[in-house]
Design a binder for these strands. Structure first.
Lengths: 330, 330
DNA sequence: CTGTTAGCGCCTTCAT
DNA sequence: ATGAAGGCGCTAACAG
């Protein structure tokens, strides 16, 4: 790890000047500062937040303590992570990336406050990840794939899952199928769309597919996209949603309009979140192995920490979960 | 804050010996060690984990980075906390207390790794909390009440909420009412039970009440408790559950037995978790102001951090949310 | 078995 | 505007 000492040496100034420059103290001469910042960049300097905290006797962080990090949402996933982390005698901390580049998450990635990270937050830039990962700081990615040293990606086969779902719909006699998604900012959502498109193409159904892609991947967005579809009249016979949350929003929209799922429209989701089995009709969806994914991520982190070389890329299979939101097209 | 230096002085040994003793190095003479541990206890010593991490260049902790800490479960609550924390320029970290006294949570409470804590984990002992709270380390409690310096409790009026629910059931004509709960380990659950009992008493219905209290407060336990009730034959006309999770478990149990809710039994929950509106029948329940509670907790933390003196005890009101799991008793 | 000592990396007062 | 130097609190050789 490079420290301010290294920077000082490289820039030919004293440690304290470096500290001042890095902390935006305006006492420092502009030219000197530039020189220092350049050196810092070249050496890929990352502040040691622990040392800084120690010196300042303050962390400026609040702990939220809960019985179990594994609340329903990421529930299974976090459970997998938590169990192996605990068994290795490590602590597990959750922090969020709201706030973007100034978020707690980025701080933790870049300031050596932890020994490794598992990332499931698409709003953390690839740049930060690539620059943070080191031998002593491996990173496991659960929301994208990056080919870089000391980074593993544990993906789910989104494309195949989506393809399978589309195949299923087609097999049930559906031809006019809509795909409702948010704006495909994330790789994973892009792959889901791809799987769908491929399946349609293979069956020569390209012309009959319809796409709706606006906004986010949440329930609200699923709801409003579906409303738009309804407003256009001429409903498709089936709809694939980019994820369960959106599909549930869609179900709500249909209910409001007195449109029956699945007798009027069939619906299929993706993820198999907990709610999926509780909504009415229970949601047919593509399940991903959540617990296994979490546990695998944690295991890989430890293998990397121990210096073992590992496969940098994993792709876990999905499974179709048949419930009541899809019916055969007569 | 007391440091190993203070202990060394008090015990009349060198700091390294203190360090050895505290870290269970068996090199240290038993008598010396005892002396040191006693001094540590007297001075209420708490290790500075940051210093230790700095020295060891290792934190033994993994960060789990998520887009937003506010997943559904604590969703609203965490959202409230997150927003005010962020606006103050502080970081927010979630850690769990699985592992009891050796958990990450306790470590964070006792090792000055953070500047304050918000606790929502009944398995963290009162002792730890009382000993950790200081002027420079205030603690907000969301799951219990402790009367101690630098500790605030932000409660919800569980007793009144429960009382209101029972009143409502009675008002709907129910007389034979069962209360299903886990083992009342936590204060809050005890209060809920109390509210129910009081309402029954006031209406002279004490004799007709039935209690079932085993196990935990989760869905599984609600399910099995309900099964037991069913097995006994002679169903009550209404059931109050200690929380929504248990009530949902109950609904599942009834469905399996072909018992109709609410026409055969009325059911009421507590909390108004997200799922409550999605289960069928939608769950009538007692809502607590989650977001407000979170935001208030965070605000109070900052006021304490700024040295303001505050009311040490808050009690937020609940509200009955009428849905479809309760019907009038003919 | 216990003490002395040299840092971990950074910040900050004081002097220049 | 820059540098020297003294810690923050703890650990871990090393020496005794």
């Amino acid at each position: 790890m490079t420290t301010i000492k290294d920077i000082a040496k490289m820039a030919g100034v004293s440690i304290s000047t470096v500290s001042y420059a890095l902390n935006n103290n305006n006492k420092v001469n502009v030219k000197t500062k530039e020189k220092i910042l350049k050196a810092a960049r070249q050496l890929n300097y990352q502040k040691n937040g622990i040392a800084s905290d120690l010196k300042k006797s303050s962390t400026r962080t609040i702990a939220l303590i809960v019985t179990d990090l594994a609340g329903p949402y990421y529930a299974e996933l976090v459970k997998g992570i938590q169990e192996v982390t605990l068994s290795k005698g490590y602590d597990l901390l959750a922090c969020s990336s709201v706030g973007g580049e100034t978020s707690t998450a980025v701080k933790f990635l870049t300031e050596k406050r932890v020994d490794a990270a598992i990332v499931l937050a698409h709003n953390v830039s690839e740049d930060v990840i690539v620059h943070s990962a080191r031998k002593q700081f491996p990173i496991a990615l659960l929301d994208r794939t990056i080919d870089s040293e000391h980074v593993v990606s544990i993906e789910v086969d989104n494309e195949a899952g989506s393809h399978m779902a589309a195949e299923y719909l087609i097999g049930q006699g559906h031809r006019d199928i809509a795909y409702i998604s948010g704006m495909a900012i994330s790789e994973l959502m892009y792959k889901r769309l791809n799987g769908f498109e491929k399946a349609m193409q293979e069956r020569g159904l390209e012309g009959s597919k319809r796409l709706l892609q606006y906004g986010l991947f949440n329930r609200e967005s699923g709801y409003s996209n579906t409303k738009m579809l309804i407003a256009q009249g001429n409903l498709p016979s089936a709809i694939m949603y980019a994820n369960d949350e959106m599909a549930i929003g869609g179900i709500n929209a249909f209910r409001e309009h007195g449109i029956k799922v699945p007798s009027d429209v069939s619906i299929i989701g993706f993820d198999d979140i907990e709610l999926a089995q509780y909504v009415r009709p229970a949601l047919t969806t593509v399940m991903q192995p959540k617990y296994e994914r979490g546990a695998l991520a944690a295991h890989l982190i430890f293998q990397m920490l121990e210096g073992q070389s590992i496969e940098p890329f994993y792709n876990l299979p999905t499974k179709l979960v048949l419930r009541n939101s899809v019916t055969q097209k007569r």
